[in-house]
Design a protein around this nucleic acid. Sequence first.
DNA 1: TAACGAACTGACCGATGCGTCAGTATTTCG
DNA 2: CGAAATACTGACGCATCGGTCAGTTCGTTA
Lengths: 208, 208
Amino acid sequence: MTATADSTDGSDEQRSEAVARRRREILEATCETLSRKGVSATRIADVARRLGISTGLVHYHFATKDELLAEAFQFAGKAELEVLRELAAVDLPPRRRLNAVIEEFCPRGEFVSWRLWIEGWAEALRSERFRATSRELDEAWIGVLEDTITAGVASGDFICPSPHDSAWRLSCLIEGLAIQLVAHGGTIDSVEMARLVDAAVSAEVSGG
Amino acid sequence: MTATADSTDGSDEQRSEAVARRRREILEATCETLSRKGVSATRIADVARRLGISTGLVHYHFATKDELLAEAFQFAGKAELEVLRELAAVDLPPRRRLNAVIEEFCPRGEFVSWRLWIEGWAEALRSERFRATSRELDEAWIGVLEDTITAGVASGDFICPSPHDSAWRLSCLIEGLAIQLVAHGGTIDSVEMARLVDAAVSAEVSGG
DNA sequence: TAACGAACTGACCGATGCGTCAGTATTTCG
DNA sequence: CGAAATACTGACGCATCGGTCAGTTCGTTA
């Protein structure tokens, strides 16, 4: 049986540690390549070269290129979800948690992840697997935002008629601004973005 | 001299009417294909087949595939800018104009244009020309929104401390929601989107 | 240490699709 | 009308790249 066989579930547990590590290496290399070159320009040879392995080995672990890309995107999504879970577990006062959540969401540095999400949206137009991953990630983000706002309303820190609606609006606002920052490059900077987001946050959670 | 030579400016004026028409046909066919299949899966043969012409003829009018795609995207952008200009020229009371502008912006029907814009954002990550077109379009949208809000403030219909900021936020909110609607498909519908946008509009233009 | 299977290599095959080009049809103009 | 320019065809060359496979290395177990 080849290592590729059970790729439908991402569980690495019962696979040998070495294989799991190799798969992870390949997925990470794929994500980096994906972020720099985009879906269509990413070659299996790029991924192999980056790791100093043969293209055959990539195919040994991942049946097809589509498989590899979809799984890499999912891998990145899961990593982000992990960050989210940790963020949700930290015990902070509502206002500070909301700031932390939004801070984490907004693009920073080289935009590696955000370039991936933007690629993902375009890919989601045609690929079921990309769409599912992208949706899942977004829903998780909105969920964390909503929970945070709801907690703040319960504690009396926030006034917000519909945490659900506010979470949706804030999440979408941030994504729209991220497009300007990451894809359009130069229309706004992170400071300007933070300013616009902060104003929206204030409006959403303190009054109707 | 071939028809391709002066493709740097898009001016069709001094070109023969027949050639201009042919170029337009090809660009329109390319936009449709682009919207359905995406940038990387669009083949010159697809465009040619759709028009019942040879691939050679496409190359006769457009030097390379990159050229063709970039110009098609720009063509779609210009068409949208045209709609904007008309919208801005209509004389309506501020509230109704704002509604009309937003109505026009939000995704409808088959999402043909919106699928194109989403493709464009991903492409803008690497292509200078796609980035320029996409930016230009976005700036125009924000500009129309800002002008409309400013007019409403001047007439006393709106209360808005910063039409500029509000226009940015509304535009980005709509783009973020469009991703959910068009790319993620099924997370929300147009009615839900309209509801979320309306609430944001009310918050932005009637109070601080 | 022999043997077996898993991990890995890299050359190769086949498909695909862009761009070219020699040639053909059509229009323009002297 | 004849000739030159323009519009157009479609087959072909050529490069690219995904996926296969025969063979090699490595680790593990009897």
